[in-house]
Design a protein around this nucleic acid. Structure first.
Ligand SMILES: [Mn+2]
Ligand SMILES: [Mn+2]
Ligand SMILES: [Zn+2]
Ligand SMILES: [Zn+2]
Lengths: 149, 149
DNA sequence: AGCGGGAATTGGAATAATTCCAAAGAAAGA
DNA sequence: TCTTTCTTTGGAATTATTCCAATTCCCGCT
């Protein structure tokens, strides 16, 4: 039961409607969880995060909702080698850096000109719906934030 | 039982020796199969190809040998989304194009200068052991080879 | 040639992530 | 309200891969 007459439609509600899908508490919750901590969680990680707020949710629903969000182009699925899929709400064109020591993942912005150079590698007639770029390596040890000596 | 006194060491034998590993008929066969048809087969596909010549080989061995070849840097493992792993004996720096209609995969050569541009996207201090680039899209329908009209 | 020890292969069981399925529960439309 | 459609849910099934324990193979040494 919602008190207000009509909420302003969230971007999520809008995208769902556009695809003829319904907005549900589960979908909202999962999408919010992805926005809140953008560390490219797995489905299982999303599951445990949202269970805090909605203990009755099922893992199957988490998979279902994540798939829905991906289909609405609100979320990207990211795969590293053979590991579990990860999910990313960053819609800008970006590559992924996977730190092999810590397992942490983060985004590397991808300027349009570089993306063009890459796309230009394709032979004539080829068209790419998506281009995935992943770095695997090491990032510098996080410097302990240093206060004035 | 081999008749000749000592064969010249193949690149495979060399790499294996370098890693303290043995050359075996299974490893040779699997490596040859990859070189012969470079269509990025899955482990299962490799399995059925090599069974023609060595019916007693096991799937576990195919997985083992493929992993060994990858560790020796003779073969690259290639992953598309959540599908089964594929294997590629092309050692030049290259990207992969995955045709979403046919499922076919092939190599896109990656010039050094483009690779540099990409590597330069990393913030200072980051180092990349490997960079993976995958295109997903459509390639032009294979033109039926046309003889003189 | 025979022996001993490490390496590799093998078949089958186990695992991990995801998908499938059928039943029950909301929501929307008429 | 009745009907239809969409969604969620728990559990079973599936897929690809890894693990495991038991041979078998191979190499160097005697
Ligand atoms: Mn990695
Ligand atoms: Mn694809
Ligand atoms: Zn991302
Ligand atoms: Zn390749």
């Amino acid at each position: 039961m919602r008190p207000s007459l009509h909420e302003p439609p969230t971007p999520l509600a809008e995208r769902l409607a556009h695809s003829g899908l319904r907005n549900t508490p589960q979908r909202e919750l999962i999408y919010r969880a992805l926005l809140e901590k953008r560390d490219h969680p797995t489905a299982d990680e999303v599951y445990s995060r949202v269970r805090a707020e909605m203990p009755s949710i099922s893992l199957a629903t988490v998979y279902n909702c994540l798939e829905t969000l991906v289909q609405c182009d609100l979320v990207r699925q990211v795969n590293f080698e053979r590991g579990p899929a990860r999910y990313c709400p960053n819609l800008h064109p970006h590559a992924h850096f996977h730190d092999e020591k810590s397992g942490a993942t983060h985004d590397i912005e991808l300027p349009a000109d570089v993306l063009e150079r890459i796309r230009a590698l394709l032979p004539p007639g080829y068209s790419a719906r998506a281009i995935e770029i992943t770095f695997h390596g090491q990032m510098p040890a996080a410097q302990p934030t240093q206060s004035a000596a």
